[in-house]
Simulated scan of single mutants.
Amino acid sequence: MFIAQLSDTHVDTAQPHKAEALRRAVAFLTTLPRTPDAVLITGDCTEHGLPEEYETFQAALSPLTMPVYVVPGNHDDRAQMLARFPLPGEGLSGFLQYAVEDRPLRLIGLDTHWPGQGAGQLCAARLAWLDEVLAQAPERPTLLFMHHPPIQSGLQVMDAIGLRGRAELCEVVQRHPQVVRVLAGHVHMPLTAGFAHTTVMTCPGTDATFQPDWAQPHKLVIQYQPPLALLHHWQEGAGLVSFTAAPERAPWVTLHDGQRWAG
């Protein structure tokens, strides 16, 4: 199973370059030699949660022929997203939180949206739902995806708008060893960290990647770098292997033909 992850598209009708960046990322996915079986978009789909922004967002995704699974971020509007993106599987009423069962790798999207807040939240109801759904299929390898990562970055500004309920989520995941990865967005940086028995990975935004100045952790001083996507490949026996990809058109070069290296 081959999964592409995009994040933090921040579509804004007043800033058309953001939608154009999303269109470039979508075009990149359509030119991959192997078509992704699914695309995950881990929140902040729009900048203000406005209907016209979601219309532009959906139009930019229209070239994708595979299922696209979304979860809300702090810039999104949950009601708008629930109206436009029907739950693709068993879900939690009132939240954009659901399980996708018809894949070799079970996918569970978590809704960390906290209305009016930059930070995210997993309340008792959302955590109890996750615990119950994971308990229903203990033998099935499972990937969780969400907007706010359940880790701290060490950057005080970003950690102040991090996830509430992080410790409680860790306790839930610890009870379910079939969780092979937790994917998130929000920080606009490619971070990797241990969490419970598994690993958290964050995907940067489609418009830019942040390179922070770690010498000033009390501030958020960054360099803007080219956008990145994450590509995840699941294979029985090998598990989940993840790649970082720059969503740009470039020639494919065969370095090894299966028997020998190219000259």
Score class of each variant (00 low, 15 high):
L231K: 00
T202I: 08
F210G: 01
Q225N: 07
V173K: 05
L228H: 06
T206N: 11
G194M: 06
L231G: 12
T192V: 15
L169D: 06
V187N: 02
R166V: 06
H197E: 03
P190G: 03
A160G: 15
L191N: 02
Q178P: 00
Q174H: 12
Q211N: 10
L230K: 03
L230A: 03
A229G: 06
L183E: 11
H232C: 03
T202L: 08
P177W: 01
A208H: 14
R166G: 01
A167F: 08
T209I: 07
D207Q: 12
C170L: 11
P226D: 06
F210L: 15
V221C: 11
R166H: 04
I222N: 01
A196I: 08
L169W: 03
A215N: 13
V179I: 12
L228S: 04
C170I: 00
A196C: 07
Q223I: 04
G162V: 05
V182H: 03
H188C: 09
H188T: 03
A167Q: 14
V182D: 04
I222W: 13
A160K: 08
H176P: 09
A208V: 14
R181C: 11
T202F: 02
L163P: 07
R166M: 15
Y224G: 01
Q211K: 10
Q223Y: 10
F195L: 08
I161C: 13
L220G: 01
P212D: 06
L220W: 09
M201W: 03
V179L: 10
A215M: 10
V221L: 14
G194C: 09
T199G: 05
L191A: 07
Q216V: 13
A160R: 12
G205K: 01
R175F: 03
M189C: 12
C170G: 14
A208I: 13
G194F: 09
P190W: 05
H232P: 00
Q178M: 11
P212Y: 07
Q178C: 07
V180W: 06
V173Y: 09
T192K: 12
A229N: 03
L231T: 01
Q225H: 11
T206F: 04
P226I: 09
L228M: 14
D213I: 05
W214I: 13
H188D: 04
G185F: 06
K219M: 13
P190D: 10
T198F: 09
Q211S: 13
Q174T: 15
A193L: 08
G194Q: 13
Q174P: 00
Q216G: 03
T202R: 04
A193N: 02
G205T: 00
L183W: 02
A229E: 04
E168C: 07
I222E: 01
G185W: 05
L191I: 12
P217A: 11
H188R: 01
M189N: 05
T192D: 07
P226C: 11
D159P: 07
F195K: 02
G165F: 10
H218G: 12
G185T: 10
A193K: 12
T206M: 08
G205E: 02
D207F: 11
G205R: 00
V180S: 00
V200H: 08
C203Q: 02
